[in-house]
Amino acid sequence: MKDLFAVVMLLGIYSLLSASFFVAMDAVDVAFTEAAVGAGISTLLMLVVITITGRSEKTTRHKPLLALLVVVFTGSMLIYGTFDMPYFGIADAPIHSHVAPRYIQESMKEVGIPNIVTSVLASYRAFDTFGEVVVIFTAGIGVMALLSVGRRPEENEKTTAIDDSMHEQYLVIRIVTKMLIPFILLYALYVQFHGDFGPGGGFQAGVIFAAAIILYTMLFGLTTARKVINQSFIQFIAAAGVLLYGCVGIVSMLNGANFFDYNALASDPVAGQHLGILLIEWGVGCTVASVMIMIFFNFAERREMQQNNEKINNIEGDSL
């Protein structure tokens, strides 16, 4: 398929479908993440990239036979590998007999949180989650290093005039968005703090929060959004989230336990677990939200610069 827009849309639809079959298999947390991250924000970010790179794929001269061969070979090896796996849903599969029984039976006593997924993610496997957060943070830094445009040119009268004409064009959607954004932000906070009891947590909440801000940016322009949230503030929050996460681990180490052993955070182990999970989810949410906003801002800024250059070129061409 040569049209990249259609490819991105298909990818989004695929993510949404896989989210619905996660729901059918009772993995609500995974489904929520897939819907928010896979179908929501990554589709959006890919669309933003398409506005810069152009919509159609470059035509290739050579026939990609070698690539096809590699793909077919790898695919058949992977399918061959699945023959060794236990049947779907079989009771004595290795994955059900290793640590899963302990999570299911003991986690309420040890961690004291009804949602087992959260206690696995944030407490038993806190180190893995820390790795994920660092990966997201690194991605944000990478995008910033590659795309960041030094100082923005000061706003002149022409751009404000364009902004005013845009206001009439997008009147309906702007007003509806203004009505919706508070609820989206509130919902993000709900997801953030309700992660202990139902599906949700820092990752999803951060993405939803970022989506609200990105929606605002798309409709009201980058300049306005920059006034609300400036770049250095987001960078600070992104770093602070990772730092908060890491500090929880360090504090538990200073209290004489292992890295990320929350039992040592308070006098009562269960209270310590609650505190630790709350803090690290907060760190995850901050980092994810600000990194997503940062990535979007940098891409949009690039796009704006491109457009401005084109405009200037057009004006110069006209005067010649």
């Binding site: 064009q169 309906v172 959607i173 509806v176 009505m179 919706l180």
Partner: peptide
């Protein structure tokens, strides 16, 4: 009720 009509409107526009 809020989002459906708005998206159709935006698409048409």
């Amino acid at each position: 009720l809020l989002i459906g009509p708005t998206t159709s409107h935006v698409l048409a526009k």
